[in-house]
Design a binder for these strands. Structure first.
Lengths: 178, 178
DNA sequence: TAAGATCATCTGCGAAACAGACGATTTGAC
DNA sequence: GTCAAATCGTCTGTTTCGCAGATGATCTTA
């Protein structure tokens, strides 16, 4: 088991495996670090998005986190029940709810974030501190470039792929226009 | 993408969001690029591990991919039905099955890999080529350092995984009434 | 040889995701 | 101004999926 999973056999891409492995491990550690939040890792991500994300509606929140709106509903229910966030009516659009964190929500998040940052740093033990900073920068840059808000003009798959007839079968990144 | 998802509010960590976003997008593209494999992205990862991973048993395959053994069983069933892999008895341990790819499996994987590599490169449009190479290197290095094969002496969280009494106070998402 | 651990499989249960419909509201066309 | 279409959040129902547990086969050890 010493050399198994990652190393073998030349130069095929370990990109996906590495990404999945890293996220899995991150998720496990965040689950442990943020166990005072509902829904574990996902709850942490949600609260982070609520506090720092500046997203106008539940739908925006959902697409930013890559989850379904119907899931967002009961996810937020749990947070409201815990007194961590509030649903307020958006005066500009009375269909939408504006999600804001309570004081307690912000405090809980801050405490969790401190633990998560420590866990993240520990997660990246394979890199020395200088590399860690660089890695974080590159990662964020890459993600912002492809996230749900990415430039819609930069069409994606069909350029280099012999995509049959379903170029983008799922997931249309429709950010609210701006 | 100017104001929405990721950028806001100073210096909290976007690490988890970036990781999840990138993996989600990667997964979507691989789903499209490897749609001739069972189980989409997961199937691609499985076949990659079978061909390049040199893993001795289903269990090793499962832990490397972070999935359950019981899932691995029917996942492999699908691949065997498609004639992409075979289960062979391990002569050294007749409990275990040694999973090997068929010729066709290797060919299908090779074709898929070509498409996936292109998709990955396209995924990283936010980085220039030099940064991409660096990012891949750092990512793999970080993942190998924390993966299922990482040095068990410096591990941290593994202890929490099997813990039966682990603090997981809030569970049910509550289909709350309101 | 016996007891315990490990590998792969199967069964059943519970949870989670997804599609669809609904009322409320906004937007756009005419 | 009116009407149709789209959007937001919610709820319902279906179905899929992961996970715990038990089982038979095999290896390991004492």
């Amino acid at each position: 088991m010493s050399t198994t999973a990652g190393t073998r056999t030349g130069e095929h891409s370990l990109f996906g495996w590495s990404l999945a492995t890293l996220l899995r491990e991150w998720s496990a550690r965040v689950d442990a670090a943020a166990d005072d939040l509902p829904q574990g890792t996902r709850g942490y991500q949600l609260l982070t998005a609520v506090v720092h994300g500046n997203l106008p509606s539940q739908a925006a929140l959902a697409t930013s986190l890559g989850i379904d709106r119907t899931v967002m509903t009961y996810l937020l229910d749990a947070f409201v029940d815990c007194g961590l966030v509030e649903r307020r009516l958006d005066p500009a659009d009375r269909r939408a709810r504006r999600i804001v964190a309570t004081d307690r929500g912000r405090a809980v998040l801050a405490a969790a974030e401190a633990r998560v940052v420590a866990a993240e740093d520990e997660l990246l033990t394979g890199l020395d501190p200088e590399q860690r900073a660089l890695f974080r920068t590159l990662l964020e840059q890459a993600a912002v470039g492809t996230g749900p808000d990415a430039d819609p003009c930069r069409t994606v798959v069909e350029a280099t792929t012999p995509a049959p007839d379903a170029p983008r079968p799922q997931r249309s990144p429709r950010p609210a226009s701006r």
